[in-house]
Amino acid sequence: MKELRQAVEAQWPNLEVMIGWGWGFDLLHGRPLFVRKIEEVAGLVWNPFCVQNLTGYLAKIPAVQAEDKAKKIGVCVRGCDSRSLVALIQEKLVSREQLMVFGLPCQGTVDWRRLAAHSPLVGVKSARIEGERLLVEDSRTIREFTLDQVLARRCLRCTHPNPVVYDVLIGEQVAPRATSLDRYRDVERVEALDVGGRLAFWREALDRCIRCYACRNACPLCICQDRCIAETRDPKWLSQYMGLPEKFLFHFIHALHLAGRCTECGECERVCPMEIPVTLMKEKLGRIVGDLMGYEAGLDPEATPPLLTFNPAETGV
């Protein structure tokens, strides 16, 4: 945390605004923090509760801008976020030259809902990871959790904890929690069900959807934003009914628009107030893209994502 603040302070003359994390309403919640004055750098934090992918703020309207073009926009990225950033750079939605990227190797982030499901925590005084355990002290007692119990699903299947693009690296590189062999085990679990079982799984999951569109709005690559097919009136694709067809259509289009682009950062699932495993759909697509096209999204800023190419000579399409 100290190292991050020092690094940002050292770079401050080149920066107009810095997007990082600060404390949310308690010690179990981080929040995006926009730093515009050097004295606000002290508000920056870096811990397992810094859960938001901040790269969306660079691309989605109204995107964070540097008024003075000679200066840069600073942004904190974990491994997963850095891949979103690569995808945004590939699609020319952000300009790499305008950024000062602070890379943060990440041990995984805590899903507060998994914590709360174990026991309600009131008056949290401290929360820290020691080794493979999370210690939380609240007004009543100190509780200990294994990381397997409290890390977000996306973190348990993380293959890229270290940023793939950065200008300044804060801290030591860390070992991934998953390998390319086991990162799709959740997808495999659903695939192992028969057709009826899969249908029941998605029916139950999507039935919970309240169409708040948090999944879409939190996605750094869902850049249609206010022009999304979910809400257009003319043409009108989706009715206001709350039935499964509407919910399925929205989530499926959301996923398909991300095929070959989605880096599986898991923001869509993190923000869902109804805990629908929406990233699973994108994981399945990511796997298909990998198998068919040998491509993994968000690793090489120079690469062109397979579904963004058009080759008239292509056969068999």
Binding site: I210, C212, N217
Partner: peptide, 13 residues
């Protein structure tokens, strides 16, 4: 509200 995502969570819950 600079960090707001313009989603409907707060209003729907």
């Amino acid at each position: 509200a600079e960090r707001c995502l313009s989603c409907g969570v707060c209003t729907f819950v």
